[in-house]
Write a protein that binds this DNA or RNA. Structure first.
Lengths: 346, 346
DNA sequence: ATCTAGGGTGAATGCGCTTTCATAAGAGGG
DNA sequence: CCCTCTTATGAAAGCGCATTCACCCTAGAT
């Protein structure tokens, strides 16, 4: 910048003005400066600008390190498809990028590895005006500290810190609606629910919705999921399906899985065992992943508006950047039931 | 930082050391500092650190503003699927993010809107250690200037600036292999090629491959594509298919489209006209988009390793950051033929 | 007891920019 | 022709950190 100033015979203040407030500089001077900048290959330092102006024009996203889950998903899917499957994080990124672009922000993304001062989270936090975090990505205490300095919005998970903005999807509502559909529209009465580990807030919320539907329909209300999977993967789903079949008791008429991955695994296991879906047993998932459309039979599920999650996150951040005094909000995004063949529809 | 230093009774230099080189500080001192930082909610400023150390630990990606293309794609696809389709840019982002993470970098992404000093490109360039650009995203002259200051790698397109690293996919090879397959394995002789606008380097490279295959097989070598679509969309593909049918001359035995979108549109148009694929006419695409698998009949196509494109980009950037003297390289990533029903396979 | 290393710490400088505040140069008005 | 009011520009003070150099202190060697 000093070089540009010297070369064009002005002060650095004027060079700065050329970039920040072009109209405040005489056209002739401005051209001289821009020409010099071009000749010198001048690239303004975002760091310096950010330091001086205390703002970066960048929003951030921290998401968990899915590396293992991906490797697994890739291995399970036919290799043909592994490039095609859009992950949760991909969709959030896309949503945030769109919204950020609309507001003139760039987006900084990083998967958190471990914690500690040198973590990527710390790097992100120091380089953005505000950021979103996927639940269970960053240790609560770190978030607690960081959120005192800049806007943070928490996505999809329990509200661990109450002064943070927070967005979830309507897990319970979705599962309740799904169960209601099975009960009322398909006349099923003996339903089983396969959940995840008790620490998964999503899975728990979905089970809650299932309970509500049972209650609403006057059916017995289970205290616990019939089965809990550790990993919520296809393999676990297959295992759960077989466990359900091998029980002494009569088969359930329908099985609700806490996510699509498990339901897909179950579909395959049932096919191997010669159990017809939906004639013998109805199967449902949750999430609305692409795979749910492709499997046979197509999976009835509940779609989460993941992209909107990202867009809303940016909206909240931008709002708070404009008005830091705003009360923290907690949004719940509506989900939508997708009826396909695996429950008997279509 | 000054506050932290004061509170823990040390100098700012020591605070800095606690974060940069923890081992050089006595454990007891370090704990005092970290405790003070926690109490004060200290978040190190990435800007200041970047300014002082002249490095950001961030890599960047600039890609075109697909907003319009997306809206169109969403409208064409059943609404059910619009969240599921992974775009070109999504895949590159994923690839770059993975690779960047491995090397300890975060990723800054921005879709370029217009040019000018205030463009997102300028913002990205000033905040990263190096970045990748999708072809035709950033004006060549801007890139010329920026690339004098930091590593830039150009993705998928002509090599406009010869001192830049550059990665392309083997468009010509792929199309040649595809045409060879149609000619040799399926015995087709009368082939048509539907290209894009002459300015699209990808489409042109693919046509080149087609020409080569004709030459290799001793077939007449066309000078120009039989048809050129303006937009390479489904609608244009459908139109092209109909135009081909309506010609005076005999129908071709096979039609190679320069991308999947057009081929899919053609598939639908042919179905409407009662033309059977592949019995009456074979159809092929290029890209390997997810949709190509779902349409009926499934589309024979050439898959681009888009994710690898992103990963390689990061590798090149990291290499160059380590050794700025390295000669610029130009990589060509191999593609793979995917044989499905639309050419008569399967 | 004195000397020597070496680890731990502080003072000071500068990274490249934004932003007042002050000043100079014109533009009208009397 | 002098005075006031804009408009364009310059000078200078940080922004928050990394880093060098100098210094002090302690432990081991002599």
């Amino acid at each position: 910048m000093y070089d540009v100033a010297e070369r064009s015979g002005v002060s650095i203040a004027t060079v700065s003005r050329v970039y920040r407030t072009p109209d405040s500089v005489r056209a002739q001077t401005r051209e001289r400066v821009l020409e010099a900048a071009r000749q010198l290959g001048y690239v303004p330092s975002g760091n310096a600008r950010g330091l001086a102006s205390r703002t970066t024009g960048v929003l951030g996203l921290c998401f968990p390190d899915y590396a293992d889950a991906d490797a697994e998903a890739d291995a399970e899917a036919d290799s043909d498809a592994d490039d095609a499957v859009m992950l949760y994080s991909d969709q959030i990124i896309r949503g945030m990028e769109r919204a950020a672009r609309r507001h003139g922000y760039a987006l900084l993304i990083a998967a958190s590895l471990e914690g500690g001062p040198e973590s990527l989270v710390a790097k992100v936090a120091g380089r953005v005006d505000g950021f979103a975090v996927l639940a269970q990505t960053v240790p609560t205490e770190d978030l607690e500290v960081i959120s005192r300095r800049l806007p943070v919005v928490m996505l999809a998970g329990p509200r661990e810190i109450d002064h943070l903005d927070h967005i979830v999807v309507a897990n319970a509502d979705g599962e309740r609606e799904l169960a209601r559909h099975l009960i009322e529209d398909h006349g099923l009465r003996r339903l089983a629910f396969v959940g995840g580990e008790a620490e998964s807030p999503d899975a728990e919320a979905r089970f809650l919705g299932f309970q509500e539907a049972c209650r609403d329909a006057g059916l017995p209300v289970p205290d616990e999921p019939d089965l809990r999977a550790e990993m919520m993967t296809q393999a676990e789903g297959a295992r759960a399906a077989e466990a359900l079949l091998d029980r002494e008791t009569e088969w359930p008429q329908g099985v609700l899985f806490a996510n699509d991955q498990m339901a897909v695994g179950a579909l395959r296991a049932l096919e191997r065992r010669g159990v017809r879906v939906p004639e013998d047993i109805a199967v449902t998932g949750f999430d609305g992943i692409p795979l749910s459309r492709i499997v046979r039979p197509p999976l009835t599920t509940v779609r989460q508006p993941i992209r909107q999650l990202g867009e809303q996150a940016v909206e909240l951040l931008v709002q708070r950047l404009g008005n830091s005094g705003r009360e923290p909000v907690s949004l719940m995004l509506p989900v939508s039931l997708i009826r396909r063949a695996s429950c008997g529809c279509g």
